[in-house]
């Protein structure tokens, strides 16, 4: 058998061991990503592709224009393309974290092993958020070109790259959405995942400003109350999509002074709820 050298005492400080463990956890996740990259690309691209195909190609072709004239259709494309990037970032958070976690807590019980890593338990959840965020950034990078080229002739989005916003808002949105994934993955029992999609993911998606900018919601009123515009402020995806509009287009968007702090706030909120849930699920 194998030769033994028992480590009767911890040879490394908690901080050193934790750093190594975090590196190991992320290296593992990235290896899995590399091994399944084809699958990752397919599942990342299918939704953006269908959205652009239906709204920016089929609709103009059959004359069912969104936004009236062809100039209106092009205007809609400018709104939709950043929205598609935003929604992809959110789905990445749900898929790479919430679904994976439901599986690991559920039938595979892999989480049992993962939390034996020689680091605090919260760091295991943080590693998930970090690698989920990396996947979100990759998703945004491959979705944007697709979204910008799939359209009928004349229905071209007016793209304008604001690099400062791109390199700050895209990662920030990815962390916020990955943290949302952590909250969802630790809140829903594996058997209730369908419920999660129906009651959380779908409303967030449809009321998240993917197909319309927040600034255009003002006409939806009861009496003088802009109820929809107010209500959707609770939806984190609104800020992600508005942020993508600010980063990728010159279209009107919510003020950056609002987008940045609110996204940071959502990220912090989701992360703290998610880490608390995670701890509660793991320890008894």
């Amino acid at each position: 058998m194998t030769t033994f050298r028992i480590e009767a005492n911890p040879t490394r400080s908690a901080a050193t061991a934790s750093r190594a463990a975090l590196g190991g956890l992320i290296a593992r996740d990235l290896t899995v990503l590399r091994k399944t990259f084809g699958e990752f690309v397919l599942r990342t691209l299918i939704q953006p592709f269908l959205l652009c195909f239906v709204f920016l190609y089929v609709f103009p072709k059959i004359g069912q224009a969104v936004g009236g004239s062809s100039a209106g259709a092009a205007g809609f494309a400018t709104i939709l393309v950043p929205g598609v990037v935003g929604i992809s970032i959110m789905f990445q958070g749900v898929q790479s974290i919430a679904l994976a976690m439901a599986q690991e807590f559920g039938f595979t019980r892999e989480i049992e092993d993962r939390v034996q890593a020689p680091c605090p338990i919260w760091l295991v959840a943080v590693s998930k958020v970090l690698s989920g965020s990396v996947q979100g950034v990759i998703a945004a990078a491959i979705v944007f070109p697709i979204a910008a080229v799939v359209h009928a002739s004349g229905v071209t989005a007016t793209v304008s790259l604001h690099w400062l916003e791109i390199v700050t808002l895209v990662p920030l949105a990815c962390v916020a959405m990955a943290s949302l994934g952590l909250v969802l993955g630790t809140s829903f029992e594996p058997r209730n995942i369908g419920l999660m999609f129906g009651f959380v993911v779908l409303p967030i998606t449809f009321l998240g400003g993917t197909y319309y900018p927040w600034t255009h919601l003002a006409p939806v009123t009861i009496g003088h109350v802009h109820w929809l515009q107010t209500l959707v402020l609770l939806n984190p995806l609104i800020y992600v999509n508005e942020g993508m509009r600010a980063a990728f287009t010159d279209a009107p968007h919510m003020h950056l002074y609002v987008i940045y702090p609110v996204l940071v706030g959502f990220a912090a909120l989701f992360l703290s709820i998610g880490l608390r849930n995670f701890r509660r699920r793991v320890l008894s």
């Binding site: 480590e7 009767a8 005492n9 911890p10 040879t11 490394r12 908690a14 061991a17 934790s18 593992r28 290896t31 899995v32 091994k35 399944t36 595979t108 019980r109 892999e110 989480i111 049992e112 092993d113 034996q116 890593a117 020689p118 680091c119 605090p120 338990i121």
Partner: peptide, 23 residues
């Protein structure tokens, strides 16, 4: 007090199969 240090010196085989299915 020091769960992370304890984990450095423990090896655990749990009841269920907790192998990483993706590796």
């Amino acid at each position: 007090r020091h769960p992370a240090l304890v984990k450095q010196v423990s090896g655990i085989v749990s009841q269920q199969n907790t192998l990483d299915r993706q590796l």
